[in-house]
């Protein structure tokens, strides 16, 4: 019988670049990014899927990278916060976060941003949330709006208390994405 193998070669397509790695099977995508690829944008807030700071996009879907073994995600396309901007051109969400001051200490911010990218795509694809009306037609874009954004962004904790600004920022970006037809902001401090 062969000796058990506790490490594996994997290829992760990170921000559009193939990265070939040998990982200890215990290595999460988060640790592979931070410790092996020096991509420290994704943050380790809790390491147990309870805060969202590690959120990245995996094959287009937002996930907690701290709960994904890299070996099990061999071949996946990963987008981290470092991959959101187009060269010097920031992603509209990044611009909106700056403008709305939707961050303070910045530690949850990369996860908020990646999550928000996923949220906008999920809403555009008509995927429901807990606050989407049950009668909303499946597959039809869910209008953005504070209630939807708040619920969908609730997997990303922010201890500095930037939630209301985050909602504004995501709403701005949703508006930019959808044009004038989006659900709109429901008021607030700004």
């Amino acid at each position: 019988m062969e000796a058990p193998v506790h490490a594996s070669p994997v290829t992760l397509y990170v921000n559009g670049t193939a990265r070939e790695l040998v990982v200890d099977n215990r290595t999460t995508v988060l640790d592979a990014l931070r410790e092996q690829l020096d991509l420290t944008g994704a943050k380790k807030g809790c390491d147990h899927g309870q805060c969202g700071a590690c959120t990245v996009l995996v094959d287009g879907l937002r996930m907690n990278s701290c709960l994904l073994f890299a070996v099990a995600r061999d071949g996946a396309r990963i987008t981290t916060v470092e991959g959101l901007a187009d060269g010097p051109e920031l992603h509209p969400l990044q611009e909106a976060f700056l403008e709305r001051d939707a961050y303070q200490c910045g530690y949850c911010t990369p996860g908020q941003l990646c999550s928000a990218v996923g949220v906008l795509e999920e809403m555009a694809a008509g995927r429901p949330s807990a606050v989407t009306a049950p009668e909303h037609p499946s597959g039809q874009a869910v209008p953005a709006g504070d209630t939807e954004i708040r619920e969908r962004m609730s997997g990303n904790l922010c201890r500095c208390g930037c939630y209301v600004n985050i909602v504004r920022a995501v709403d701005d970006a949703a508006g930019a994405q959808a044009g004038a037809g989006h659900g709109g902001s429901e008021g607030g401090a700004w």
Partner: peptide, 12 residues
């Protein structure tokens, strides 16, 4: 399902 966990967790 939508009452459970978070969007990220439900995706995984």
């Amino acid at each position: 399902l939508l009452a459970g966990a978070s969007g990220q967790l439900r995706n995984a």
